[in-house]
Amino acid sequence: MNLFRLAGDMTHLVSVVVLLLKIHTIKSCAGVSLKTQELYALVFAARYLDLFVHFVSLYNTVMKLVFLASSFTIVWYMRRHKIVRRTYDKEHDTFRHHFIVLPCLVLGLLLNEKFTFREVMWAFSIYLEAVAILPQLVLLQRTRNIDNLTAQYVFFLGAYRVLYIFNWIYRYFTEPHFVHWISWIAGIVQTLLYGDFFYYYILSWKNNVKLELPA
């Protein structure tokens, strides 16, 4: 495993920890999109179907379990926890997330590495992950007071995607047989979606002012 990949996984892990920290300790999910969190839970459920069938490494298994458990825990907190759920900004989290699941499933059926159940679900999860951040970005645009933890959560999530691209470039030159076009193209699309956010995040950090995204 190369350094970019490890750094990517770690920033992904940090993003989840930041979000859980906010939800668990502050008992607030203000500014967090439940739609995005539900999509991530679906992404991991679809992608990690191979968890008990295909063993890669202990690291891989543990990380998969962590991402599965954390995504479902976050959804549970936002829907069921009696204090946390009251802080959910339902009025502004209006992205029609169900409507992006079906196109991703169709795309997974059409464009996959092999037409088997697991491969179709894998491709589906890759396409869905690429767009899963959209409800969160829309909610951020509509949020007047974006708190630091929410902004940091999205920042780390975006950083993870950027680092994965560096990881693929590295692997492309060091492992000649390593080519996954589906994850590369979807991954680049996913990273581009963060472009705007990164721009304003860095700007707010440089000028030491609160993050605000223009609508």
Binding site: H12, M63, F67, E113, V179, S183
Partner: peptide, 10 residues
């Protein structure tokens, strides 16, 4: 090839 490459990423 690509199709039989192990999916070792998360």
């Amino acid at each position: 090839g690509a199709a039989d490459g192990v999916k070792d990423e998360l």
